[in-house]
């Protein structure tokens, strides 16, 4: 019986602990998405929204769907699309104030308190990986009738609860404080990584199509996968050097 000895989630979790012992510059976070296994469930999208309490209009990892062919020779394909964490990111040089840059982890990060919200980086990203926080909440304009229904004030608690992006605790208590008015993007869940936790999109992946780890660790799953022959990256021709790889 061929039985997997371990869920890849457990294996990657263990590899992550190993990687965290290294100095940041010695490791190389990459994500590998196996399109043969992606079932187009969008759980990663929602897990990320939930983890980072993303407001309406902000999404870090949509899953694109496409139907190709003509009946009965038809197929459907799914493309989960986080930030590529480009090694040559076109999005950072355009920022007038250094509010977005590639940090020592190799992750293209946002400094919410520095960002002026000019959106030049959205324009510059060839992967549409950035979205702007317009200050909405999903529970905007919901009814209120205390003691009879739950009502907006209680219902939106989870939207106002603290998030920990970049290790900062932020609550969404008004429509002016960052990250409202900022551009937002996937950050490989740095705040979880530092805790020794895999990115939220990775752990929730029901197709086990998303892999994450340190490509510099030769024994890691991702190091193995990115050298396979069926690996590709999006818009490779742009020279952006994505750190997100796809298996096809």
């Amino acid at each position: 019986m061929a039985q997997e000895p371990k869920d890849v989630l457990v294996r990657m979790h263990e590899e992550l602990q190993r990687a965290l012992e290294k100095a940041p510059e010695d490791r190389r976070w990459v994500m590998v998405i196996d399109l043969r296994k992606c079932v187009g469930c969008h759980a990663c999208t929602i897990a990320c929204v939930a983890e980072n309490k993303l407001p309406p209009g902000v999404v870090y990892r949509p899953v694109l769907e496409k139907e190709t062919g003509i009946y009965p020779n038809v197929t459907r394909s799914f493309l989960p699309k986080p930030c590529m964490q480009c090694d040559e990111p076109p999005c950072t040089p355009v920022c007038p104030v250094y509010a977005t840059y590639k940090d020592e982890n190799g992750v293209v990060v946002m400094d919410y308190d520095q960002c002026i919200g000019c959106r030049a980086c959205i324009i510059a990203c060839p992967y549409s990986a950035r979205t702007f926080d317009f200050g909405k909440t999903y529970n905007d304009n919901m009814p209120e009738m205390a003691g009879v229904i739950v009502g907006q004030k209680v219902a939106d608690d989870y939207e106002r609860a603290a998030t920990y992006e970049y290790g900062d605790e932020r609550r969404r208590l008004n429509r002016k404080d960052s990250p409202v008015g900022n551009v937002r993007k996937c950050h490989f869940c740095l705040h979880r990584l530092k805790e020794g936790m895999l990115p939220a999109c990775t752990t929730t992946c029901i197709g086990r199509a998303t892999y994450f780890g340190d490509a510099n660790d030769p024994d890691s799953l991702v190091a193995d996968l990115i050298t396979s022959s069926n690996v590709m990256r999006l818009k490779e021709e742009l020279g952006t050097q994505p750190r997100v790889y796809y298996l096809v």
């Binding site: 900062d168 605790e169 705040h191």
Partner: peptide
């Protein structure tokens, strides 16, 4: 904490996850 978070902490105190 990795250094990035110190750099990026800005006005916000580093929070426990």
């Amino acid at each position: 904490l990795p250094k990035v978070n110190e750099v990026m902490a800005g006005g916000n105190e580093q929070a426990a996850y």
